[in-house]
Simulated scan of single mutants.
Amino acid sequence: MKRLLRRLVLVLALPALLVVVWWLASDGSTDVFWPPLRTILRTFPDVWTADRLRDDVLPSIWRLVAGYALAAVVGVAAGTVIGSYRRVRAVCEPVLEFLRAVPPPVLIPVIMLFAGIGDTMKVTVIASGCVWPILLNTVEGVRAVDPVMLETARSYGITGPSRLRNLVLPSAGPQIFAGLRQALSLGIILMVISEMFAASNGIGFTIVQFQRSFAVPDMWTGILVLGLLGFVLSVVFQLVERRVLAWYHGLRASARRSP
């Protein structure tokens, strides 16, 4: 219990300090673009009602989850194939380096031509940006699998899907999850950017509408919603990661305890 409380204090200490600094720095501000934090917090419940959460936040979360899941499936599957076969990697590397250098927001006008301006476009934009850290980390994770373990599995007749499921993916798991973590923060950014183009709902759309109508405190509440959403998703991701990679974290903990 003490360990849990200590961890909770460590997690909340910096956010609490930043809130206090923000409160003190903005207190008494008369700048229309920099309202006091107390004004923003007072405005928050009036802006983000249950109806707005249903109409704007839930669609944004759905687009983020759909694009992120699509990127995860494509990135892990393609990364496993590319990382497993040297010839495939030699053929694909130049193309991958070219495509990952193209910023996803630049592709929004092109994607709009093919996918329209609906949810398909937004999900595609999110997936097109999130796929690269997942794919590249998966490639490196698969390439780093211990060759001795691969040879041992081969000698015991463990090949094909069984080797993939029981050796390759678990061994590459820590690096795959590193890519998934990078992609999550990138997905939130792309979610907002995609909703600023030809959208009728979503958090990004709402923030732009507040900005255009000079409702500055309302705009800041939208930024707070994005921060809270990112924090919640990060906590959920950590819980999933610790459950899936329990063996890995246990191994690291025992290594730290050993003399």
Rank of each mutant, 00 (worst) to 15 (best):
Gly173Trp: 14
Cys130Lys: 07
Gly141Phe: 07
Ala153Gly: 12
Leu136His: 00
Ala178Phe: 10
Val168Asp: 00
Leu164Cys: 13
Leu167Lys: 08
Gly173Arg: 10
Pro147Ala: 03
Val102Pro: 09
Ser171Asn: 07
Asp119Glu: 14
Pro105Leu: 07
Leu107Thr: 11
Leu167Phe: 07
Val102Gly: 06
Gly116Gln: 09
Ile134Pro: 05
Leu150Trp: 01
Ser171Leu: 04
Asn166Gly: 15
Thr152His: 13
Gly116Leu: 09
Glu97Ile: 15
Arg100Ala: 03
Ile134Ala: 08
Ala101Pro: 12
Ser155Tyr: 08
Leu150Pro: 00
Ser171Phe: 04
Met149Gln: 13
Gly157Val: 14
Val148Asn: 11
Ala178Ser: 15
Val168Tyr: 03
Leu150Asp: 00
Arg87Ile: 11
Leu150Val: 10
Leu135Pro: 08
Thr152Cys: 11
Arg163Gln: 09
Met149Pro: 02
Pro94Asp: 09
Leu164Gln: 11
Ser171Glu: 06
Asp119Val: 11
Pro103Asp: 01
Pro161Ala: 15
Thr159Phe: 11
Arg154Gly: 10
Glu93Cys: 01
Ile126Val: 10
Val131Lys: 01
Arg89Cys: 10
Arg165Ser: 11
Ala144Asp: 09
Pro94Lys: 09
Ile134Tyr: 13
Pro170Glu: 07
Trp132Ile: 02
Leu135Asp: 01
Val131Arg: 07
Pro104Glu: 00
Pro104Cys: 02
Pro103Arg: 02
Met112Ala: 14
Ala101Val: 10
Val142Thr: 13
Val142Glu: 07
Leu96Lys: 06
Val110Trp: 05
Leu136Ala: 00
Val145Thr: 02
Pro174Asn: 04
Arg87Ala: 10
Ile126Pro: 04
Gly118Tyr: 05
Arg87Tyr: 13
Arg100Trp: 09
Ser128Val: 14
Val88Cys: 06
Val148Pro: 09
Ser128Ala: 14
Leu96Ile: 15
Gly157Pro: 14
Asn166Pro: 05
Ile108Ala: 04
Val125Ser: 00
Pro104Gly: 04
Ser128Trp: 07
Ala101Gln: 06
Val139Trp: 04
Ala90Pro: 02
Ile134Ser: 03
Met149Thr: 02
Cys92Met: 15
Ile117Asp: 02
Phe114Arg: 12
Val148Phe: 14
Gly118Arg: 12
Ala178Glu: 12
